[in-house]
Computed example of a mutant assay.
Amino acid sequence: MLILRYSPASPYARKVRIAADLLGLSERIEIVAGDAADPADSLRRQNPLGKIPTLILEDGSTLYDSRVIVEYLDHLSGAGVIPVDPSARFAALRLQALGDGVNDAALLIRYETFSRPEALRYDEAIAHQQGKIDRALDALEAAPPAGQVDIGHIAVACALGYLDLRFAGAWREKHPRLVAWLEKFARAVSTFEATKV
Protein backbone atom coordinates (compact mmCIF):
# COMPACT_ATOMS: atom_id res chain seq x y z
CA MET A 1 0.00 0.00 0.00
CA LEU A 2 1.13 3.55 -0.73
CA ILE A 3 1.32 6.01 2.17
CA LEU A 4 0.61 9.70 1.75
CA ARG A 5 2.05 11.96 4.46
CA TYR A 6 -0.22 14.96 4.60
CA SER A 7 -1.68 17.79 6.63
CA PRO A 8 -5.43 18.46 6.42
CA ALA A 9 -4.86 22.18 5.69
CA SER A 10 -2.25 21.64 2.96
CA PRO A 11 -3.61 22.63 -0.46
CA TYR A 12 -0.87 20.54 -2.09
CA ALA A 13 -1.87 17.41 -0.17
CA ARG A 14 -5.50 18.15 -1.00
CA LYS A 15 -4.56 18.30 -4.69
CA VAL A 16 -2.94 14.86 -4.46
CA ARG A 17 -5.92 13.37 -2.62
CA ILE A 18 -8.40 14.70 -5.19
CA ALA A 19 -6.24 13.49 -8.09
CA ALA A 20 -5.89 10.05 -6.47
CA ASP A 21 -9.65 9.80 -6.10
CA LEU A 22 -10.31 10.83 -9.71
CA LEU A 23 -7.72 8.28 -10.82
CA GLY A 24 -9.39 5.49 -8.83
CA LEU A 25 -6.42 5.03 -6.51
CA SER A 26 -7.79 6.18 -3.13
CA GLU A 27 -8.19 2.61 -1.88
CA ARG A 28 -4.49 1.98 -2.50
CA ILE A 29 -3.31 4.94 -0.44
CA GLU A 30 -3.12 5.14 3.34
CA ILE A 31 -3.41 8.73 4.55
CA VAL A 32 -1.03 9.48 7.46
CA ALA A 33 -0.75 12.91 9.08
CA GLY A 34 2.66 14.51 9.23
CA ASP A 35 3.96 17.48 11.19
CA ALA A 36 6.54 19.39 9.17
CA ALA A 37 7.37 21.54 12.22
CA ASP A 38 8.19 18.57 14.48
CA PRO A 39 11.85 17.47 14.25
CA ALA A 40 10.88 14.09 15.73
CA ASP A 41 8.36 13.35 12.96
CA SER A 42 9.67 10.70 10.55
CA LEU A 43 8.69 13.03 7.70
CA ARG A 44 12.18 14.57 7.73
CA ARG A 45 13.72 11.14 7.13
CA GLN A 46 11.20 10.37 4.38
CA ASN A 47 11.68 13.72 2.64
CA PRO A 48 14.90 15.65 3.32
CA LEU A 49 12.93 18.88 2.81
CA GLY A 50 10.54 17.84 5.57
CA LYS A 51 7.60 18.93 3.43
CA ILE A 52 4.05 17.76 2.88
CA PRO A 53 2.89 15.95 0.84
CA THR A 54 5.29 13.05 0.62
CA LEU A 55 4.31 9.72 -0.94
CA ILE A 56 5.94 6.55 0.40
CA LEU A 57 5.99 3.81 -2.20
CA GLU A 58 5.59 0.13 -1.46
CA ASP A 59 9.37 -0.41 -1.68
CA GLY A 60 9.95 2.31 0.95
CA SER A 61 11.24 4.93 -1.47
CA THR A 62 9.56 8.32 -1.50
CA LEU A 63 8.27 10.89 -3.95
CA TYR A 64 7.76 14.61 -3.42
CA ASP A 65 6.44 17.31 -4.15
CA SER A 66 2.77 17.30 -5.17
CA ARG A 67 3.52 17.71 -8.89
CA VAL A 68 5.78 14.65 -8.92
CA ILE A 69 3.33 12.64 -6.83
CA VAL A 70 0.43 13.43 -9.17
CA GLU A 71 2.59 12.59 -12.18
CA TYR A 72 3.37 9.21 -10.59
CA LEU A 73 -0.26 8.49 -9.72
CA ASP A 74 -1.32 9.49 -13.22
CA HIS A 75 1.24 7.05 -14.65
CA LEU A 76 0.23 4.32 -12.20
CA SER A 77 -3.46 4.55 -13.00
CA GLY A 78 -3.26 4.95 -16.74
CA ALA A 79 -6.44 7.03 -16.39
CA GLY A 80 -5.08 10.52 -16.82
CA VAL A 81 -5.64 13.77 -14.95
CA ILE A 82 -2.65 14.95 -16.96
CA PRO A 83 -3.65 15.00 -20.63
CA VAL A 84 -1.50 13.18 -23.19
CA ASP A 85 -2.14 15.51 -26.13
CA PRO A 86 0.68 18.09 -26.02
CA SER A 87 -1.56 21.13 -26.40
CA ALA A 88 -3.96 20.03 -23.65
CA ARG A 89 -1.08 18.73 -21.51
CA PHE A 90 0.84 21.97 -21.37
CA ALA A 91 -2.34 24.00 -20.86
CA ALA A 92 -3.16 21.79 -17.85
CA LEU A 93 0.38 21.98 -16.48
CA ARG A 94 0.43 25.77 -16.90
CA LEU A 95 -2.87 26.02 -15.04
CA GLN A 96 -1.46 23.78 -12.31
CA ALA A 97 1.54 26.11 -12.04
CA LEU A 98 -0.82 29.07 -11.66
CA GLY A 99 -2.81 27.35 -8.90
CA ASP A 100 0.35 26.20 -7.13
CA GLY A 101 1.79 29.71 -7.46
CA VAL A 102 -1.26 31.16 -5.71
CA ASN A 103 -0.69 28.63 -2.92
CA ASP A 104 3.01 29.47 -2.71
CA ALA A 105 2.24 33.19 -2.34
CA ALA A 106 -0.62 32.59 0.11
CA LEU A 107 1.56 30.38 2.29
CA LEU A 108 4.30 33.02 2.40
CA ILE A 109 1.73 35.62 3.47
CA ARG A 110 0.40 33.20 6.07
CA TYR A 111 3.88 32.59 7.47
CA GLU A 112 4.66 36.30 7.51
CA THR A 113 1.42 37.30 9.26
CA PHE A 114 0.76 34.27 11.46
CA SER A 115 4.18 32.92 12.40
CA ARG A 116 6.25 36.10 12.60
CA PRO A 117 5.84 38.57 15.48
CA GLU A 118 4.01 41.69 14.33
CA ALA A 119 7.01 43.96 14.93
CA LEU A 120 9.10 41.85 12.55
CA ARG A 121 6.61 41.56 9.70
CA TYR A 122 7.70 42.86 6.33
CA ASP A 123 4.77 44.66 4.71
CA GLU A 124 6.48 45.00 1.32
CA ALA A 125 6.99 41.25 1.12
CA ILE A 126 3.33 40.67 1.99
CA ALA A 127 2.23 43.17 -0.68
CA HIS A 128 4.53 41.52 -3.24
CA GLN A 129 2.98 38.10 -2.62
CA GLN A 130 -0.54 39.54 -2.58
CA GLY A 131 0.13 41.07 -5.99
CA LYS A 132 0.87 37.60 -7.37
CA ILE A 133 -2.39 36.28 -5.98
CA ASP A 134 -4.39 39.25 -7.28
CA ARG A 135 -2.98 38.97 -10.80
CA ALA A 136 -3.59 35.21 -10.89
CA LEU A 137 -7.18 35.63 -9.69
CA ASP A 138 -7.82 38.34 -12.27
CA ALA A 139 -6.48 36.08 -15.02
CA LEU A 140 -8.67 33.22 -13.82
CA GLU A 141 -11.70 35.51 -13.57
CA ALA A 142 -11.16 36.55 -17.18
CA ALA A 143 -10.85 32.92 -18.30
CA PRO A 144 -12.01 30.35 -15.71
CA PRO A 145 -10.84 26.77 -16.30
CA ALA A 146 -12.87 25.05 -19.00
CA GLY A 147 -13.33 21.58 -20.40
CA GLN A 148 -12.72 18.24 -18.78
CA VAL A 149 -11.36 18.22 -15.22
CA ASP A 150 -7.59 17.85 -15.22
CA ILE A 151 -4.70 18.62 -12.89
CA GLY A 152 -4.94 22.32 -13.67
CA HIS A 153 -8.57 22.46 -12.55
CA ILE A 154 -7.70 20.54 -9.38
CA ALA A 155 -4.79 22.87 -8.52
CA VAL A 156 -6.88 26.01 -9.04
CA ALA A 157 -9.74 24.62 -6.94
CA CYS A 158 -7.33 23.75 -4.12
CA ALA A 159 -5.79 27.23 -4.26
CA LEU A 160 -9.22 28.86 -4.01
CA GLY A 161 -10.09 26.51 -1.17
CA TYR A 162 -6.92 27.54 0.65
CA LEU A 163 -7.77 31.22 0.20
CA ASP A 164 -11.20 30.45 1.68
CA LEU A 165 -9.61 28.64 4.63
CA ARG A 166 -6.85 31.09 5.52
CA PHE A 167 -8.16 34.43 4.23
CA ALA A 168 -11.92 34.12 4.81
CA GLY A 169 -12.76 33.95 1.11
CA ALA A 170 -11.90 37.62 0.54
CA TRP A 171 -11.19 36.79 -3.13
CA ARG A 172 -14.85 35.96 -3.82
CA GLU A 173 -16.31 39.48 -3.93
CA LYS A 174 -14.33 40.59 -7.00
CA HIS A 175 -14.38 37.27 -8.86
CA PRO A 176 -17.97 36.10 -9.47
CA ARG A 177 -17.16 34.00 -12.54
CA LEU A 178 -14.49 32.16 -10.58
CA VAL A 179 -16.89 31.63 -7.67
CA ALA A 180 -19.41 30.10 -10.09
CA TRP A 181 -16.68 27.91 -11.59
CA LEU A 182 -15.60 26.65 -8.15
CA GLU A 183 -19.19 25.81 -7.22
CA LYS A 184 -19.53 23.82 -10.43
CA PHE A 185 -16.21 22.06 -9.76
CA ALA A 186 -17.31 21.17 -6.22
CA ARG A 187 -20.53 19.63 -7.53
CA ALA A 188 -18.64 17.57 -10.13
CA VAL A 189 -15.76 16.46 -7.89
CA SER A 190 -17.12 15.19 -4.57
CA THR A 191 -13.63 14.75 -3.07
CA PHE A 192 -13.23 18.53 -3.08
CA GLU A 193 -15.81 18.89 -0.31
CA ALA A 194 -14.72 15.65 1.35
CA THR A 195 -11.17 17.03 1.78
CA LYS A 196 -12.30 20.44 3.08
CA VAL A 197 -10.97 21.45 6.50
Results as ranks from 00 to 15, higher is better:
Glu183Arg: 15
Pro48Leu: 03
Leu25Arg: 09
Ala155Ile: 00
Thr54Phe: 06
Ser190Cys: 01
His75Ala: 14
Arg45Lys: 15
Ser87Gln: 15
Pro145Thr: 03
Ala142Ser: 11
Ala125Val: 10
Thr113His: 08
Glu118Asn: 00
Ser10Gly: 08
Arg177Ile: 09
Gly152Pro: 00
Leu55Val: 01
Ala136Ser: 10
Ile133Met: 05
Asp150His: 01
Leu178Pro: 10
Arg116Gln: 05
Lys51Ser: 05
Gly78Asp: 09
Gly60His: 13
Val189Ile: 05
Lys51Glu: 13
Ala19Tyr: 00
Arg94Asp: 14
Val32Gln: 10
Ala40Ile: 12
Ala20Lys: 01
Asp134Lys: 12
Leu95Tyr: 08
Leu108Arg: 11
Glu141Thr: 10
Ser77Thr: 08
Phe192Ile: 00
Asp104Ala: 04
His128Lys: 13
Val81Gly: 05
Leu76Trp: 10
Ala37Gly: 10
Pro176His: 05
Ser7Leu: 04
Asn47Lys: 11
Lys15Phe: 08
Leu63Pro: 00
Asp85Gly: 12
Glu71Ala: 12
Ala168Tyr: 13
Ala36Cys: 09
Gly161Thr: 06
Ala106Trp: 04
Ala142Arg: 11
Ala159Pro: 08
Arg67Glu: 15
Ala139Phe: 10
Ala127His: 14
Pro145Tyr: 02
Gly147Met: 00
Gly80Arg: 03
Tyr162Glu: 02
Leu93Ile: 13
Ala155His: 02
Asp41Asn: 08
Gly131Cys: 03
Asp100Lys: 03
Ile56Gly: 04
Pro176Trp: 07
Ala105Cys: 11
Glu112Asp: 11
Met1Ala: 07
Gly80Asn: 07
His75Pro: 15
Gly161Phe: 04
Gly60Lys: 12
Tyr111Asp: 06
Ala142Thr: 08
Ser190Asn: 04
Leu98Arg: 03
Val84Ala: 15
Ile18Pro: 03
Ile56Trp: 03
Ala139Lys: 13
Asp21Arg: 05
Ser115Asp: 13
Ala79Val: 14
Asp35Leu: 10
Gly78Ile: 14
Tyr12Ala: 07
Leu137Phe: 13
Asp100Ser: 02
Lys15Trp: 04
Tyr162Gly: 01
Gly101Val: 06
Ile29Gly: 05
Ala33Pro: 07
Asp104Ser: 03
Arg110Ser: 09
Asp59His: 08
Arg110Glu: 12
